[in-house]
Write a protein that binds this DNA or RNA. Structure first.
Lengths: 356, 356
DNA sequence: GCCAGTTCTGCAATCGTTTGCATCAATGTT
DNA sequence: AACATTGATGCAAACGATTGCAGAACTGGC
């Protein structure tokens, strides 16, 4: 069917081994035959069969990225980054969707090693630590976004404590004292870390932590909505809400719209993680960017390093943190009318239609 | 490193060939040895090496899905559907991102056949027809969402003419006579087809086509915004806008919000293709659902059929159309106060906050 | 012109499977 | 009891590459 090394060798009247050596450039062939063979190979349209090669070398030029889903915008950009990087190095990315489900993750993992992938970047569910640990002996693995505490795998994390801190501090600097927090489950790292960043910012500013302002849960939009309602129904509702979980954002926005609450005039809103439509929303929604792009790039860097280092890429570092970044748009407003009357960055919004 | 067939054979004191036959269940071994070998294989934790097997059989149990990007919500659900289906059949999905770029598509395609994929579902750019045609000789291929006119590949398409027709008719039935259309480039199939559906609905209803109401272009949100502005700035602006291109929706929504136009009171809005946040938007946005889920499922069906039929799965059918569906939410409103005063499905919105 | 040293090339084994063919034992037939 | 038939097994050759080892060809020094 397709042209094999044998065909090339025959056409060039040399042995297969010579052909192989010439084409892989081992430097063990004469300059002349090398050139002649590359030419002939090109003419014949020879493309090495990665399967055959893989059988012999134990490599596949396949690198897998295992994420929970593709609806999460962060995972999308990560996938695109990883794909682009790998492709440039002549690897194929195997994108797998694990659905944040232990069983599915486990199945996928075994299939992947069966296929002799050369490397793996995984967003672990945290429930297959033992398996990951075993696999790590055979394949370079880098964890992304989440840590699996049962392993000591190299892990690239977003700096959630810092991100939450940055966001909260921003709101405080705008004069907010009662800041609602809608955050993820406290049995996830990110849930805990984002809460801690929030708390730290409050403490530094000397603002007492008010537990009625903090809502944590396993988030889907519905939960985001109900948390948001609870916050707004408070006797003294917050002047700003920090939605530190992107799933919850949809629900919160909905409730805010339903109640005709004007952002940022009546309420400031800050979200964690970007979504492509946030900047097209009106008002454009300010966010804390978790740095998905940087995360993906760093993960690829680390993985490649491990893959090169053949078994011992252990630089001692176990954990990398990628800095978060505040992206100010129009959904947060300065409120302390008394002390600092200077107009905030965000525009006055709604009232007069901005002719464009 | 890992357990090979030889190990199993040795442990069972049979030859490798017997082991192979027993484990692949060719029926050429005695019941007893078959059971004994499966047991031993399980005990030893034997997992067949797909690479070695692939080398011999020419198969890889890899099926590729090549899409343009992952930001498009339709592609996301398609990817998830394809992955789920394939997985159930013990195939691994290779998800590739082609970026709607001819060169990248071409590169990816060659890498994929190099890896001896067993099948391919591709959203073609339309610029590598020749290549696709050649590859189709080696690998079963099904085109998805777009047709490549240079080939005669089996293609699963959304029924865009019907979808656009349905949407437009819906608006007409609600009493709208001036319906703005924001649609994709006319050199794409979907662009043309959606326009034609719109025109047909108009004609059927005896409404004259007004070219000032139709805007087509290569869409990014910015273009969507400018088209929307043009429509709203018309001396007699439309009472409804049909955004028949999902990229454009963001921009349109933005302009509408900027100008403080109330939906659906001042303007009805209908979009093509769903986005996860559409139903969380306030008002929830009515859409024409292109049936991404069904498309993906059908594409998988056809591909599997071809893969089974080994070379001749040609049933004569070249093109499959998956019906579109109207999903009424709250962004379209009945307007002919005179003839049919019955209140529309959509609620009155804005004015009084709906306590929830 | 011969020999040691260096390059280059080819033979053949190997990776882990599958599979055509031959062998062999067990069974049934006469 | 001899023979044909069936069913289970093993041997060995593939699949398409890589690679250790040995031999061939060339180089230069004497």
């Amino acid at each position: 069917m397709s042209v094999t090394l044998k065909d090339v060798a025959q056409a060039a009247r040399v042995s297969v081994s010579t052909a192989s050596r010439a084409l892989t450039g081992t430097g063990l062939t004469s300059e002349r035959t090398q050139q002649r063979l590359t030419r002939i190979a090109r003419e014949l349209g020879y493309r090495p069969n990665p399967i055959a090669r893989g059988l012999k070398t134990g490599q596949s030029r396949l690198v897998a990225l295992l994420v929970h889903n593709l609806t999460n915008a962060s995972f999308q950009v990560m996938a695109e980054v990883v794909q682009a990087r790998l492709k440039a190095l002549n690897y194929q990315m195997l994108l797998c969707i694990g659905g944040d489900d232990a069983q599915q993750e486990s199945d996928t993992l075994t299939t992947l090693v069966d296929h002799r992938i050369d490397g793996l970047i995984v967003v672990p569910t945290g429930k297959n630590g033992a398996q990951l640990k075993t696999l790590a002996k055979d394949v370079p693995i880098v964890c992304l976004v989440r840590r699996d505490d049962a392993t000591d795998l190299e892990t690239v994390l977003a700096d959630d404590p810092q991100g939450a801190y940055l966001g909260t501090r921003h709101l405080i600097e705008l004069g907010h004292k009662r800041i609602g927090l809608i955050v993820g489950r406290q049995d996830t790292t990110s849930g805990r870390e984002r809460l801690s960043g929030y708390v730290r910012a409050l403490r530094e500013a000397g603002i007492a932590k008010d537990d009625t302002l903090i809502h944590a849960g396993h988030f889907v939009p519905e939960t985001g909505a109900s948390c948001c309602r609870k916050l707004l129904d408070l006797p003294r509702p917050p002047s700003a809400i920090f939605v530190a979980n992107h799933e919850a954002t949809l629900g919160a926005l909905r409730v805010i719209a339903e109640r005709n609450i004007a952002i940022p005039d009546d309420l400031s809103l800050l979200c964690y993680e970007d979504m492509p439509w946030f900047e097209w929303h009106r008002p454009a929604i300010s966010i804390v960017d978790n740095g998905a792009r940087d995360l993906a790039n760093l993960a690829v860097d680390r993985l490649l390093h491990r893959m090169d280092a053949k078994g011992n890429g252990n630089d001692g570092v176990r954990e990398y943190r990628v800095g978060a970044r505040l992206v100010q748009r129009d959904s947060c407003r300065r409120i302390d009318a008394a002390s600092k009357p200077k107009s905030p960055k965000s525009k006055s919004s709604a009232a007069k239609p901005a002719k464009v």
